[in-house]
Amino acid sequence: MHKTLQETLKTGWIVIGVLAVMTIAEFIVAVAVDDKTMLFALLLIVALLKAWLIIQYFMHFGQLWAHVAEVWDGILSNDPEADREED
């Protein structure tokens, strides 16, 4: 089911809000944490979460599987009518 434009934009605002909070959080963590290993681990976790948010919601990663399925079904299809023959 397709979202309305308003619903889609609302999703964008929520995602950017979470990204902004996480960016501020990682900056505070970098200032507050002195242990190098702990800091590396925390920053990596935050970066992975931020990347997942962008990939999932802004880049619509979830829709990729539908495209893969479409192409895969097309490859496996044996329907000769589906192919067009050109001279």
Partner: peptide, 11 residues
Amino acid sequence: HVPQHVNHRFS
């Protein structure tokens, strides 16, 4: 006659 097959089974 050499046909050129264009696959239209996916967009």
